[in-house]
């Protein structure tokens, strides 16, 4: 890595935010969404709107009241605007992942190296900026979960928590499906939605301050095997991410009647692949926390002790079950059975 030239004056977090906000005036395509009851105004640059809005489109609502958060999402390519000078030195770049800061009590900043995307939130002014070089830089996982840094920061400030999990339900009562990649989480969620259950998210959902599951994204990420089980979803694949071999499907288009904004959380379900028949077994609170917390905190910038405590409280409060996944046509019935049984509330 190059040596920093002497004498460069770094912008403060405040001045960097102001520069990023002002540079985003090319974000002119405006939409309003409602997230956990809070109005969030989005302004997209022309290049990013078609890629980053669809996974949030089920949350769009007519503007009412004051916006709790205003976000400008812009790219340099379609707005012909370069990035302002960063608020850190060259030597501050670590070997991988992302660079954080300089955070203040009001401002959080994260730069993710791959694909090169900047997220900055100013809590005091209720504004945020997302930047990426061009629409061509947007990977499939980002289309599936846009604003995966800014929205979790915002939700945490409202007393909620983004979690790595799926949400499905019946008559407004839902389960949170937790587990790392490869556990069968996405397959379970989409099999349930395809069988007529309600769907509040596949990869990430929000647990609100009210304890309910709130939808964030209407996307699902399916591997080849899962898509083979549900061939009618193939036509709704919006992008393939070659790095992780996941197909992104928008359920708001594929199964619109199933997508709901909110479910009451009745149980946590921990799927596990490979038995003869789908069946449920009680799981301990520690097992639920092990399935939910590490995969959440390693994926969300700034998720530390408060996030772990939030999820521990959740695991103590909500009953958990292992779901041994049998043949695909038995999975939704097992989840429905749990919801019909009425987990303790």
């Amino acid at each position: 890595m190059d040596v920093e030239p002497p004498g460069r004056n770094l912008p403060t977090a405040d001045s960097f935010f102001a520069a990023m906000w002002d540079a985003g005036t090319g974000a002119t395509r405006t939409h309003t969404i409602e997230l956990t009851g809070h109005r969030v105004d989005l302004a997209f640059s022309p290049g990013l709107e078609p890629l980053l809005l669809p996974a949030l489109a089920h949350l769009t609502s007519p503007p009412h009241g004051d916006a709790a958060l205003r976000i400008r999402l812009w790219d340099s390519h379609s707005t012909a605007t370069p990035l302002p000078t960063p608020p850190w030195n060259r030597a501050d770049y670590p070997d991988g992942g992302e660079i954080r800061g300089p955070d203040t009590t009001s401002i959080s900043i994260a730069y993710r190296f791959d694909p090169g995307a900047l997220s900055i939130l100013d809590r005091d002014s209720g504004r945020a900026v997302f930047w990426i070089e061009s629409a061509d830089s947007v990977p499939g996982w980002m289309q599936a979960a846009p604003l995966r840094t800014i929205l979790p920061w915002f939700v945490a400030a409202t007393g909620g928590q983004f979690v790595h999990g799926a949400g499905v339900g019946l008559d407004g009562h839902g389960v949170l499906i937790a587990g790392a990649g490869g556990s069968g989480k996405s397959t379970t969620a989409v099999l349930c939605a395809a069988a007529g259950l309600q769907f509040a998210g596949d990869d990430y959902v929000v647990i609100g301050a009210d304890g309910d599951i709130h939808a964030a994204y209407n996307s699902a990420k399916l591997d080849d095997a899962s898509l083979t089980l549900l061939p009618h979803l193939q036509r709704w694949v919006i992008n393939d991410d070659p790095d992780v071999s996941k197909h992104v499907v928008l359920l708001s288009r594929a199964l619109p009647a199933q997508v709901v904004p909110r479910l009451r959380l009745d149980a946590i379900v921990l799927p596990r692949l490979g038995v003869a028949h789908s069946r449920l077994r009680p799981a301990s609170a520690a097992e639920a926390l092990l399935a939910l917390a590490p995969t959440t905190v390693f994926q969300l910038p700034g998720a530390g002790s408060p996030a772990l405590r939030f999820m521990a409280d959740l695991a103590r409060r909500v009953p958990a079950f292992h779901l041994d996944l049998g043949p695909p046509d038995t999975v939704a019935a097992a989840v429905s059975e749990l919801l019909h049984a009425g987990a303790p509330s």
Binding site: L83, P94, D114, A180
Partner: peptide
């Protein structure tokens, strides 16, 4: 001990940083 999350910390390294202060891909 569980190691299955370690790959999340092993993301792409930064190879170069431009004069603007931002990394090159």
């Amino acid at each position: 001990r569980f190691d299955d999350m370690q790959e999340m910390l092993l993301l792409d390294p930064i190879h170069d940083v431009a004069e603007t202060g931002w990394p090159h891909r």
